[in-house]
């Protein structure tokens, strides 16, 4: 069992590029193509998407031949937590203000680390939060409420 796509480095990379390429070409189909002399909005993306597909297929095939695996392991948990903390910041800032949003960033992203210490994270939140409020709210006068509900 030489070819296992789930762990195949170039296989996955090629597939990713191929997907983006197909996606680009399909949606560019909605935009008028025009001609080389008078390009429509669809011309450039269609050509680029096509090129991306070719690269994708080439990389995919190469990966199937070499069977090289992805190095190390995937850090899904840290990735999900970091992404979540950023999403929460955006969601909370508009609805509840800067202070809750900052607290969410620190507590959720800190969970992504190797060890989570509650008191330390709390202290970090207070210190860095105060710094951020000082710089961005009072210093640069960005128009966000501290508490917004």
């Amino acid at each position: 069992m030489k070819f296992d796509l789930r762990h195949n480095r170039d296989g996955l990379a090629g597939l990713l590029f191929l997907l983006f390429g197909v996606f680009a070409v399909v949606f560019a189909g909605d935009y008028p193509m025009g001609a080389a002399a008078r390009m429509g909005p669809g011309y450039f993306p269609t050509v680029l998407g096509g090129i991306l597909c070719l690269f994708g297929v080439y990389i995919l095939v190469r990966g199937m031949r070499s069977g090289e695996r992805v190095k190390g392991h995937w850090a899904w948990k840290p990735l999900a937590l970091i992404a979540l903390s950023i999403l929460l910041f955006g969601f909370l800032l508009d609805r509840f203000g800067m202070v809750p949003a900052l607290a969410a960033v620190f507590f959720v992203s800190a969970l992504a680390g190797h060890e989570f210490r509650f008191k330390e994270t709390l202290l970090l939140t207070v210190l860095m939060g105060a710094f951020a409020v000082g710089v961005f709210f009072y210093g640069l006068k960005l128009p966000y409420p501290l508490f917004g509900w």
Binding site: I86, L102, S109, A110, E120, L124, M128
Partner: peptide
């Protein structure tokens, strides 16, 4: 573990 949450912020 102190740095990265601050960077994210």
């Amino acid at each position: 573990r102190w740095l990265f949450p601050s960077i994210i912020m």
